[in-house]
Design a protein around this nucleic acid. Structure first.
Lengths: 113, 113
DNA sequence: AATACATTTTCCCATATGGGTATATGATAA
DNA sequence: TTATCATATACCCATATGGGAAAATGTATT
């Protein structure tokens, strides 16, 4: 098997930096593909492809507006990510302490030898 | 270019479900590779490979303990993810409202035709 | 040293990727 | 209808993947 599809998951979709950039950009409001491409310095088909992935995982909504197609944020899917990562909150400081203890340990060893 | 390496980023590293499972498991404490493999129903080399990725992005620490090698959580890297996703918090409900408004719109159209 | 145990690495494979570029589809206006 | 603008898709490529199996490396015990 190969790597899971980028469209299989919100986690996979946001693994790509440019897609995260798109999401951040869309916080400022809906935009047509061409604007996204221009503002983020990507090619038009490139932006279109990334938006497709984001749409397939539900992080983005699109609606027609005349000749153009506006893409807008649907951030609800990011709540999962936020909550999952939040489940480790109590371990952030603890990890720090552990590393600190480890450093102390190394220091002690250094003195002995 | 292909997809970015799984080791290039915390975001890429946690895109894989099994690696997220490993991180969750390690909240309960350090474990040798074989235990991780057994408890999560993966093959031992499989677990080893996933742990390598997690180690390379700094989400996991390892230390020798006799014949075995214990892997422990270093959750600090997940803070980035938590904060990034948290930047969309104000949009979660708003997205909901937008969808709601959209539904209303469709409903109106339905009445007209 | 030789054996046994734990973990990592090396192959192999199928597959999806992101990035170009070119082309096709869609929608509007003349 | 035709011309024009906006977006999506179709190809092509190089590359890294996750998984399985086999082999190599590490470490301790006898």
């Amino acid at each position: 098997m190969a790597r899971a599809a980028t469209t299989s998951d919100v986690f996979n979709a946001i693994a790509e930096p440019q897609r995260r950039d798109i999401l951040v950009l869309l916080r400022a409001g809906e935009r047509p593909v061409s604007d996204v491409a221009h503002e983020l310095g990507m090619t038009q088909p490139g932006a279109s492809k990334h938006l497709r992935v984001l749409r397939e995982v539900g992080l983005v909504q699109d609606r027609r507006a005349g000749k153009r197609r506006l893409y807008g944020l649907d951030a609800r899917g990011l709540r999962t990510v936020h909550e999952w990562a939040g489940g480790f909150e109590q371990f952030w400081n603890e990890s720090f302490d552990r590393l600190d203890a480890y450093m102390q340990e190394l220091k002690q060893q250094g003195k002995k030898e």
